[in-house]
Nucleic acid binder design. Structure first.
Lengths: 223, 223
DNA sequence: CCAATAAGATACGGCGCGTTTCTTGCTTCC
DNA sequence: GGAAGCAAGAAACGCGCCGTATCTTATTGG
């Protein structure tokens, strides 16, 4: 067993000991070995950056590992596959469901909330999020979790709150508030995003509200 | 340039001349070489069968070639990629948009039409169609062609026809017939299919009609 | 009967996933 | 403060599948 060249039957895995991570340049990177949370944060940052650069479809595990200056086994020790990794990265950025808007009028409440929802991932290229959602819909488990809203279970309950408040104000017809109707704006926006390939422009929100949701609820804003 | 044996530097590809397609059993397969339309039909049949057996996600070009008893180059001479091949196969089964139903009442017209739409691919496993649609939505070109309806551009115009007839009968409020509203049932069904992973059950059609579309159109069937 | 054409068989390069193997640095616990 | 243990990091591998290239051979049409 010489240490010169591997002789194992599998075809030696004699790693270069020195390692070449980062710069060996002067004044420079200490390049100490990261662990735990620090490492995890670096990885998820790398995922986000890869999403921004290449979109989801072309995000590769090798690419993420390289950008995070780590290696694939480190990724697979934490997440079982690509989708889980990206979910973790996206989840970091949209955890907080802020207090729902309360303008005193249903239309402006809904418009504000839906617009906020649409612009949540504006700093990622469209096709990154789009491709990711298409992949997510393949998994039965993730699909179920996704049905309630664009990212978490929050949106549906927010919509419900907004509409119920309007009903209490006498603004709309409470008999129309079925589950189907409550999720209607979400369903339509989701469909627009999936089949359109891009975050729908704001006027689509107006259209959905003025031509579908509000008339249906008997709101006074349209004829 | 001899015609005996290739001498290329890439390393010989000396195929076994006999070939072994089908059985060499007695009384058996003539196994004559197919061409043109006959071959194409056999391939598309094989695609359909592979879809039925494995679903879209696991349909491979090698698998199709093997089942059709042909080879991959034959496939790639006709279709540029997997998606195009599957589109061709699916297209064969849903080309004819029959005359739209005309029962004299909007609700039953719509219900009949939408149900027919949903059951068009009943002989394929759900996830075959579902996975295919998700893949189709990745392609910007196909996506655009798909927006109009589940398979072709037909559904939208059919819906438009049905609703316009109802308006002419005085059954609904013609002012509500915007493009958004016309495609509404289609959008909602599509969303239900994509996010649900399965062809929605018939009562979803009822729900969409009774809680959303008909009330919106001012149809008399609901309160 | 011969030339053109496309079918059919096979192999190849490439890519990306997820895994395995191995070395080495950091941490922790006695 | 030193040794044991754990996980980071590096590299390669096997696999599956895509899409292509190469070559032989059956069929068809002139």
């Amino acid at each position: 067993m010489r240490d010169t060249v591997g002789d194992s039957a599998t075809g030696g895995a004699a790693a270069a000991p020195g390692g070449a991570r980062g710069a060996a340049a002067p004044g420079g990177g200490k390049a100490s070995r990261r662990r735990g949370d620090e490492l995890e944060r670096a990885i998820l940052d790398a995922v986000w950056a890869e999403l921004a650069d290449h979109g989801y479809d072309r995000l590769t595990m090798d690419g993420v590992a390289a950008r995070a200056q780590t290696s694939k086994p480190v990724l697979y020790r934490r997440w079982p596959n690509r989708a889980a990794l990206v979910i973790a990265a996206l989840g970091r950025n949209a955890p907080d469901y802020q207090a729902p808007p309360d303008t005193g009028e249903l239309r402006s409440d809904l418009a504000a909330f839906l617009r906020d929802l649409l612009h949540r991932f504006d700093d990622l290229p469209t096709d990154a999020v789009h491709g990711f959602l298409l992949d997510l819909l393949r998994d039965p488990d993730l699909r179920t979790r996704f049905r309630g809203g664009l990212t978490a279970e929050g949106p549906v309950s927010t919509l419900s709150t907004l509409m119920r408040r309007a009903a209490d104000r006498g603004e709309i017809n409470p008999r129309r508030l079925t589950p189907r109707v409550v999720t209607l704006p979400l369903d339509l926006l989701r469909d627009a995003f999936l089949t359109g390939g891009a975050v729908p422009p704001d006027h689509v929100v107006d259209e959905i509200l003025d031509e579908v949701v509000l008339p249906l609820l008997g709101a006074p804003s349209v004829d």
